[in-house]
Write a protein that binds this DNA or RNA. Sequence first.
DNA 1: GCTTGAAGTTCCAGTAACTGGAGCCATTTA
DNA 2: TAAATGGCTCCAGTTACTGGAACTTCAAGC
Lengths: 129, 129
Amino acid sequence: MNIGQAASLSQLPPKTIRYYEEIELINPARAENGYRDYSDGDVHRLRFLQRARGLGFSITECRLLLSLYEDKNRASHDVKAMALDKISEIDRKINELNSLKETLTTLAEHCNGDNKPDCPIIEDLARGS
Amino acid sequence: MNIGQAASLSQLPPKTIRYYEEIELINPARAENGYRDYSDGDVHRLRFLQRARGLGFSITECRLLLSLYEDKNRASHDVKAMALDKISEIDRKINELNSLKETLTTLAEHCNGDNKPDCPIIEDLARGS
DNA sequence: GCTTGAAGTTCCAGTAACTGGAGCCATTTA
DNA sequence: TAAATGGCTCCAGTTACTGGAACTTCAAGC
């Protein structure tokens, strides 16, 4: 498929997809006319990148995450260690999102009236985790 | 307190903190000697920024989130609408992190032996959400 | 009191990860 | 066949930092 379809399936702009090719995160085939030709696998990869980037993982971390699945040469216990490491990072992020959500929920509940109360909720948010 | 202490409390490098001042995300006091002087409130703000940035929110979004708490002039229903909007975004991120975590957990469990199996888990990951 | 090293300051240049635009070619649609 | 649409490359600009030079300030030891 062309880059446009890959873009709408992966939720990434074409510009970004071309950039990911430039930095060798993907390597799509080329059609006879010179157009990039994306496979379903390519789109899955792009979709993964879109999500992981949106969750605050750097390109380097994305490369690592991708390699966890794809690098057949790495020793199994290394894969496991890295996976476990990433899992605890993910747990941390989930906790932080939950505390942020809780704060926003409280805010939304308390701001029903016409006047915004002077809620110092940010203090709790910034303190906790 | 000086920038070094603010840095270690907020988990942000001093460079980044100075940059946040430059783009007017914080406005610390100055001591007589010209050193920046951070209050507890400043540190909370920095800590919040550190977390929100790490969760994939852009600087613009961080500004919005901060303004939700601090802008006394905005109408209450606007605050509520924005808060609810951010809450659904947070829910989406949490779901994505959970699916990513599940995938990595499966990977870690399946990669106990000496040889890494050829798991096509990435397919599920990239497809789902 | 002096020195020396760590930590602060500004300023400027460089990097990561895109993003927009010009100018050109290919394909689809009217 | 003409025009709109979508692809291509290349280059410049933006966002969000990050590193380094050159200088000042402070705290600790002699």
